[in-house]
Design a protein around this nucleic acid. Sequence first.
DNA 1: CACCACTCATTGGTAGTACCAATAGCGCGC
DNA 2: GCGCGCTATTGGTACTACCAATGAGTGGTG
Lengths: 262, 262
Amino acid sequence: MSGDTNLKVPTKTRRSASGDTTDRLRRAILDGQYPVGSLLPPERTLSETFGVSRLTLRSAIAHLETEGLLRPQQGAGTRVLDYRTSAGVDLLGDLLGLSLSRGSLPAELLGDLLELRRMLAVEVLGLAAERGAPEEHRALREHLLHQTSLVGDAEAYVEADLKMARMLVCASHNVALELLSNSLARVLVAAPSLAPAFLVNADGTLAAYARLLALVESGDGMRVRKEARCLLEELDEDTLERVRALAPATPAKTTQHLGGTA
Amino acid sequence: MSGDTNLKVPTKTRRSASGDTTDRLRRAILDGQYPVGSLLPPERTLSETFGVSRLTLRSAIAHLETEGLLRPQQGAGTRVLDYRTSAGVDLLGDLLGLSLSRGSLPAELLGDLLELRRMLAVEVLGLAAERGAPEEHRALREHLLHQTSLVGDAEAYVEADLKMARMLVCASHNVALELLSNSLARVLVAAPSLAPAFLVNADGTLAAYARLLALVESGDGMRVRKEARCLLEELDEDTLERVRALAPATPAKTTQHLGGTA
DNA sequence: CACCACTCATTGGTAGTACCAATAGCGCGC
DNA sequence: GCGCGCTATTGGTACTACCAATGAGTGGTG
């Protein structure tokens, strides 16, 4: 290989070459560097372009194939697909992260994601009300108290929030929802820069949780859905506002300070 | 294991060794052969166990990692995760396929999947009513006519049905929903044995589509949602019935009385 | 004896190479 | 002109060697 940058800087953020290559290739594709419908350059060429071994490059291609961005075909080549018609939910996190890393604010995309999460949450709450066992309801209430006691600690709070979501989904007794919930959770952790926006809503969120939980315990699924739809819509609107308030061109260091807006 | 006679037989179903290994490993994991929380045997050992090169084995591991079944860690080993808390939606297709290949009928899992699809469809229809442009509504109606003319041709019909779903999701103007729809479509194509069940409902489905489309054109999102919820619930119930009727695939001794679980 | 630092075998990660298999395009022969 | 087959191209698999991170075992030190 070209001996240009063989001296890899031992940055602490030593990400795996494979994952790194995956991100670079994905970005190149989404940026339109390799147009949709066209053939990717051969692996042997691309591996040189990216300065990695063909093996690593293949690993990246395989990853993007499962994401739905590429479709390799032996003997023919690797075709670039249209992510809007081929990619799965997993790509959402990458799209968000990509927009953020470019400085642009994916308010629209984030809005869509929140909308999706909201409509799922509404149904999960409804199902949890209709199917959740009393002990599950009790556990939820207990956990809500626990979460309330963590409003100070950011990390612990978001962790508790994720667990709350998991418990709710679990109470809905639907495996498909459970797996989908996992996928969405992954999307959120893939774009950690957005976490603060969810955090400042803690008070409102907890209040909404308390109200919804009471409804869930009542067992009236339809009523839960109706109220949840309104409550969560408000919450998400709030969240979006706060996200928009984040300066558009704040790549790295200037984040994490949202306390003043609360 | 490798004593199988089909060593290099160029069978038409010549699946890639990589994908094949992935399926075998996933099955072994889901079967509990490698308990959740434990460490997978080292790659060099597993590659011998499966009779493939370490490279192929690694490819399989990487795939299952993105699915959320494994978490390799350099120097430590590869840990087996609990798919219910770690796997994403993509695993749904594999779970369905796995159950089918074992002869058992995943009626419960399929019910969950249909429920998920239903709740998404309800919202998609509502959004399409509220946000869809008139030309999109018109295109939908046109496509419905086209699809109606294909009730005879199975393959063309399901393709048209998928396109209908895609058009609807597109009219909802939500990218996140679009990607999720792609994921679910993948799940369904991963379990093609279920296609017939969806097919026999063609008449009822088309009738429901026509009614819902009219409502979508009216623009009354909430009313669409309400009606869609009922209509689709009926349709899915019907579909599940028919799937349960497909049971006699394996004349098992133990009665497959799956109908009494309601 | 308890504790700490160091060593080193284990294990996943990457690189290089060679070869197999499928595809597509070109050219030869009919 | 048409069809058949050859071949260059490209993805798929295998083997090997080495790097990097982990963690347990080992020896030294208080």
